[in-house]
Design a binder for these strands. Sequence first.
DNA 1: CACCTGATGTCAGTTCCTGACATCAACGTA
DNA 2: TACGTTGATGTCAGGAACTGACATCAGGTG
Lengths: 186, 186
Amino acid sequence: MARWEPNARGRLEEAALDLFGERGFEQTTVAAIAERAGLTERTFFRHFSDKREVLFGSEPMSSAIAESVAAAPESASPFEVTAATIADLAEALEGRRERALRRRAVIAANPELQERELVKLAHMAAGLAAALRERGVPDLAAALAAETGLAVFRVAFEQWVNGPDTPGLPALIRSGIDELRNITAE
Amino acid sequence: MARWEPNARGRLEEAALDLFGERGFEQTTVAAIAERAGLTERTFFRHFSDKREVLFGSEPMSSAIAESVAAAPESASPFEVTAATIADLAEALEGRRERALRRRAVIAANPELQERELVKLAHMAAGLAAALRERGVPDLAAALAAETGLAVFRVAFEQWVNGPDTPGLPALIRSGIDELRNITAE
DNA sequence: CACCTGATGTCAGTTCCTGACATCAACGTA
DNA sequence: TACGTTGATGTCAGGAACTGACATCAGGTG
């Protein structure tokens, strides 16, 4: 018989999302999260480096980015690879719209959490740029393609969560890419 | 005779930048900053909402952005306006390269500070997008132009501080814009 | 069976940050 | 001049985030 209930980390994430939704982020103490998960505050900080991280800890985005970039055809231009990659990310999110919205609501209600989300997006951009360089794309082009690609992703994601009935996220990404091409061509 | 030494806020900023440079951000307590400035910890938090903000508190960027956008000719496209605006920002920074580098070094050494910097850049993007909408640019185009414009700014700024002898920031911005046009056209 | 490992608990302490209240020079006004 | 107001600062108490040091003890390993 196991000494402890299994999946402590998952229980902490669950408890945190629930409590943040009920009382808000600031009004929820780490002690309260740990208690609901049947653990102690000290154990919370062994699983997450800080209180915010419990909302961001399990994002497998990085590996997905590397795979998408590697899967793009040899002939694709850097920007085409970028467009295809963020379209793939969108595809992955499309399925879990409900959970994404719930998490989004918590984050939207608190500036500290928005701060952390920006960091995660910046890491995604850095990972994308690195994957592009891996393909032989020069530094400047890789950095610009990655940053602008993530910019399109951010804007499309905003439309997706805000609009009452938007087309799917992948479709929003595609129109964002098109619109960006129009804008920069002027 | 004044009751207190003047410019408490400025003294706090000065003391903080010095101490962060000497010992690092984490090893510097707010109490130590306040003491060097001849004030108390409580007074520090009356001037800055948190410890990080002392490095970001006096950025007059927002108003500069609005002015630049307003100054652009009626005929300019959204992306042209954006390009001109970030070029103006670059112009303003070009003069204070030394201080920008010092501040940059402190920020580069600490993830918490990088987090805050991303927030400031996001606010700049939001302000730029709002100024563009003010001109009648549609929502999506305004958001995309602003986000991609700031992306160019970030990338150029990185080159500027990293490269030992780069051309000026404005020149880097211009080549970034050109490169972006090339990339998206492919 | 003895030993080690690793996830958790316990406890004390530091630092960030906030609320409530006190102080007192400068200033305006009668 | 006297007197009340204002506003920047100080003082104090306390909550919550986070960390380091050490204890515990089921389960695997030799």
